[in-house]
Amino acid sequence: MEWLLPFVGPALVLGALVLSWMAGRLDRLHHRVEKASAVLDAALFHRSGTVVEIASAKILDPAASLLLLDAAHRARASTDEEREPAESDLSRALLAALADADQVRRLRADPSHGVLIEELSDACRTVELSRRFHNDVAAAARELHGRVLVRWFRLSGHAAPPRMVELDDSWPPALS
């Protein structure tokens, strides 16, 4: 077995290099998940803000306005655990309130309200993109988390694998 001795050092060095490389990858992914999560939060906040503006602008009927206002406020006031259902509810409220394609078309063409509707359309798309891109990074991080080496050597420290964000971000077809 003595012939093995000269190889032990290099093997350990190589192993350490691989491990530190993986730890670095994991660390970078975690940072990006955090960043992406912040971007998603900002996008959601912007969307609910725009909804509040539209609901307060008296351009929809009072019932629809109230419905939107309620959903938007609930989404904005939600705690972390309530966030996803509350934001999904807001998507559904939008779907219901802006279901009439003709009405949306008229509002869009209106010089004073058109801007708001465009902003909402933009905000809805940005929410979708932010969620997808967040989940892309989160999925990559989770995959790495699950690797044997990462688990055995606790490369992730105490960090839990990032969560996937599950929320309904579909928007009224009339907005596209």
Partner: peptide, 12 residues
């Protein structure tokens, strides 16, 4: 372009 903007926000 909207994709570009979203990605630029996540990667400073």
């Amino acid at each position: 372009v909207r994709v570009y903007e979203t990605v630029r926000r996540t990667a400073a």
